[in-house]
Amino acid sequence: MPQNPATEVLRYTAFSADPRGGNPAGVVLDASGLDAAAMLAVAAELGYSESAFLTGRYEPDGAAPATGRGYAIRYFSPKAEVPFCGHATVATALALAERDGPGELVFSTSAGPVPVTVVREGGELRATLTSVEPHVARIAPDDLAEALAALDWPAADLDPALPPRIAYAGARHLVLAAATRERLADLSYDFARLEALMHRLDLTTVQLVWRAAPDVFHVRDPFPVGGVVEDPATGAAAAAFGAYLRTEGLAPDSAVLTLHQGEDMGRPGTLTVELRAGDPRVRVSGTGTRIDA
């Protein structure tokens, strides 16, 4: 692997306690000696949707955790750097908790500071990240038509109760809701066409969802801009989706939502999304575990 021999690359899965589930991520706890090209090379060699790199300590003004555990972090897909990645954040927090113990962390991302709390529940570590302040915007009709054409989804297959939107909670995601579970399960899209649209709209993933119950959703995330067909469990998109539901009046100001992702890929994972009244930020939590190399 193209890296400094002293650089240790850990492998963790996030949003599942089973290494065969959830979303795998590379984690480098000391990337201070790596430049962007070296980090990209590590991420490309691993081939996971994203990998995380701690580049140094971080001391936020007036907001340092009691333990002083603040870190600057960068995220790379096999093709490019991304501004924020939820599952790699969870994976990194779990790796630090295994090394240093559970507690409070703050990660300095290019999108802003992201606090993470790690606790031990029933013998398992569980991490909860708090997003940067989110926002939601409409998508132009022509861009929506292009997205549906790239996915080969007829407009009639959309759920009219969940309107298409672009949601942000550290990265931008196009939210499209399928009317049926069968529509969500049948994913075969034009990789190059969707990638081109996503670059033009500065999207990180497309968040495809199906509502199984008012607070339970099944989701999938095409990720061609990252060089992979689909992301197995997407914390950044989950945060953006929580903000979307609240903004559109589809969830109460205080709510706990369950997102199931990865089932159609054979890597099932569960993401818990929490909305709190009076706080625009979104909390996303899940378990994880180390993957043996």
Results as ranks from 00 to 15, higher is better:
residue 86 G to Y: 01
residue 33 G to D: 09
residue 45 E to N: 14
residue 21 G to V: 10
residue 260 H to E: 15
residue 23 N to E: 07
residue 214 P to M: 02
residue 225 V to M: 06
residue 73 I to L: 14
residue 91 A to Q: 06
residue 151 L to E: 00
residue 239 A to I: 01
residue 19 P to M: 07
residue 31 A to Q: 08
residue 1 M to R: 11
residue 178 A to Y: 03
residue 39 M to K: 12
residue 2 P to R: 14
residue 157 D to W: 12
residue 195 E to F: 07
residue 292 D to H: 12
residue 206 V to H: 01
residue 3 Q to L: 15
residue 74 R to L: 14
residue 73 I to A: 10
residue 133 E to K: 12
residue 235 G to S: 02
residue 287 T to W: 09
residue 175 V to Q: 01
residue 139 I to R: 00
residue 152 D to T: 09
residue 172 R to K: 13
residue 129 L to M: 15
residue 148 L to Y: 00
residue 167 A to V: 02
residue 165 R to A: 14
residue 141 P to G: 02
residue 285 S to L: 12
residue 145 A to S: 12
residue 109 T to L: 13
residue 161 A to E: 13
residue 6 A to T: 15
residue 216 V to S: 13
residue 189 Y to K: 00
residue 133 E to Q: 14
residue 97 A to C: 10
residue 276 R to P: 11
residue 38 A to N: 08
residue 138 R to F: 12
residue 176 L to A: 01
residue 78 P to K: 04
residue 88 A to I: 10
residue 286 G to Y: 05
residue 117 T to N: 12
residue 6 A to L: 14
residue 77 S to F: 02
residue 56 G to C: 07
residue 78 P to Q: 07
residue 109 T to K: 10
residue 160 P to W: 05
residue 129 L to R: 01
residue 148 L to R: 00
residue 206 V to L: 11
residue 206 V to A: 10
residue 153 W to E: 00
residue 102 P to A: 13
residue 30 D to L: 07
residue 75 Y to C: 13
residue 99 R to F: 00
residue 75 Y to H: 13
residue 193 R to D: 11
residue 225 V to N: 04
residue 139 I to G: 02
residue 74 R to W: 11
residue 266 G to E: 08
residue 44 A to G: 15
residue 201 L to D: 11
residue 154 P to F: 03
residue 222 P to W: 02
residue 123 G to Q: 03
residue 56 G to V: 01
residue 106 V to H: 05
residue 118 V to Y: 10
residue 271 L to H: 06
residue 177 A to R: 00
residue 224 P to Q: 02
residue 22 G to S: 08
residue 55 T to K: 04
residue 25 A to K: 03
residue 271 L to V: 12
residue 32 S to R: 15
residue 7 T to G: 13
residue 255 A to M: 07
residue 200 R to H: 13
residue 210 W to A: 12
residue 74 R to A: 15
residue 293 A to S: 13
residue 82 V to N: 05
residue 160 P to H: 05
residue 116 V to E: 07
residue 149 A to T: 10
residue 291 I to N: 05
residue 231 D to T: 07
residue 266 G to F: 04
residue 31 A to P: 07
residue 11 R to V: 15
residue 192 A to N: 11
residue 96 L to T: 04
residue 144 L to R: 01
residue 198 M to L: 06
residue 190 D to M: 02
residue 43 A to P: 09
residue 291 I to Y: 06
residue 224 P to S: 07
residue 91 A to R: 03
residue 258 T to C: 13
residue 38 A to Y: 11
residue 129 L to H: 03
residue 52 A to V: 10
residue 89 T to I: 08
residue 113 P to T: 11
residue 177 A to V: 04
residue 158 L to S: 06
residue 175 V to E: 01
residue 64 A to V: 00
residue 109 T to E: 13
residue 118 V to R: 07
residue 276 R to E: 15
residue 244 Y to W: 03
residue 31 A to S: 10
residue 51 S to Q: 09
residue 138 R to T: 15
residue 106 V to D: 05
residue 251 A to W: 04
residue 187 L to Y: 00
residue 87 H to M: 05
residue 167 A to I: 05
